[in-house]
């Protein structure tokens, strides 16, 4: 694709549109899904199947007054929700949806996305600290320790994949997995390596993605029964709305990355089925993962903060490091 200005603008607009649409409609999907799980209808009044609920919620949030608590750090207070949403949208620019649909093909796509993802932790810290609310501060401290604990195993697993493919370009990582479900990195016999721990790596990555996006059972940052609403206790109006949308945009990015790195991206599970366009497969895969995330949220109680940190430091990090070593060894031998 030629990198003309027009192309970039169109691509970025589509990326932003996709992110915003997903963020809005995942809220609807989550509420409907929760309704199904809990034997109740969920939002079903506004529009067919309640489909007008997200825009109406958006209008309601925008129409509300933005209240900045007295004693709050104004600049940070306003910057935090923007910081929560903006990196998520920018990340979409580097995410390929099929072999042709990509806004901007970066050679260091994986690195860029993780760099943007780290900004999410900072936004929670800003929000908590600037609100001048004790619950918010406690929540942001939790969020930061959580972000540190879970970025390490996540990055180590990503390094494992990068080692196998030898590239950080997301397009090339997917190309390396082409040729049916048995070639995907989520399977142990990937790339002729026969690494038995790849499935475990996939699970580690998925757990870390849950923790990184502050989703249940790792939603300690906004543990509503303890910290009221956590870091966004003092936010109303669109400030809260941006945090909310940012959370869902991050979920989409998390599931996109899981799909790209471990589930073969837009590759059809069987070569026979490759007449269906790649983007369809890609969307099927990410929405399956998102459905799983929603399902987990409405099934499990919340972990404790020490349970969460123990899981990362004592189990996930050693296991992912071990797999990194094993993969490196196998690459040398095979």
């Amino acid at each position: 694709m030629e990198l003309t200005l027009l192309n970039v603008v169109i691509a970025v607009t589509i990326a932003i549109g996709f992110a915003a649409l997903n963020a809005a409609y995942l809220v609807w999907a989550e509420r409907r899904g929760a309704g199904r799980i809990q034997n109740r209808p969920g939002p079903n009044i506004n529009g067919p199947l309640g489909l007008l609920q997200p825009p109406l919620d958006g209008i309601k949030l925008m129409a509300k007054q933005l209240i900045i608590p007295g004693g709050a750090d104004k600049a940070l207070f306003i910057a935090a929700p923007v910081l929560a949403m903006a990196p998520a949208i920018v990340s979409f620019v580097t995410l390929p949806f099929s072999d042709t649909i990509i806004a901007h093909n970066l050679n260091i796509g994986v690195l860029a996305i993780f760099a943007f993802a780290s900004l999410g932790g900072i936004s929670l810290l800003f929000a908590g600290w600037s609100s001048r609310n004790k619950y918010a501060v406690m929540s942001s401290v939790r969020a930061v320790s959580q972000a540190i604990a879970y970025e390490i195993p996540m990055l180590v697993t990503v390094i494992t994949v990068v080692l196998i493919t030898g590239t950080m370009n997301l397009m090339e990582i997917v190309e390396a997995q082409k040729g049916g479900i048995w070639n995907w990195y989520f399977f142990p016999f990937t790339s002729g390596l026969y690494n038995p721990l790849m499935t475990m790596s996939f699970l580690i990555f998925f757990i870390c993605a849950l923790a990184e996006t502050n989703r249940a059972p790792f939603d300690l940052g906004e543990a509503e029964s303890e910290l009221v609403a956590g870091f966004h206790t003092e936010y109303g109006s669109m400030g809260f709305g941006l945090f909310f949308m940012g959370e869902y945009a991050n979920i989409v990015i998390g599931s996109c990355l899981t799909t790209l790195l471990f589930l073969g991206g837009w590759d059809a599970p069987l070569p026979v089925l490759s007449f269906i366009p790649g983007v369809v497969w890609f969307l099927i895969k990410i929405y399956l993962i998102i459905a799983t995330i929603i399902w987990i949220r409405w099934t499990f109680p919340r972990t404790t903060i020490y349970g969460l940190l123990n899981l990362s430091w004592k189990i996930l990090i050693p296991l992912s490091l071990f797999n990194l070593l094993l993969t490196a060894g196998l690459l040398k031998v095979v």
Binding site: A34, I37, Q38, A216, P217, D219, A223, S225, W298, T299, F300, P301, R302
Partner: peptide, 8 residues
């Protein structure tokens, strides 16, 4: 159970 974070 809701205190513990499980809503369903």
């Amino acid at each position: 159970v809701m205190d513990l974070g499980g809503f369903s």
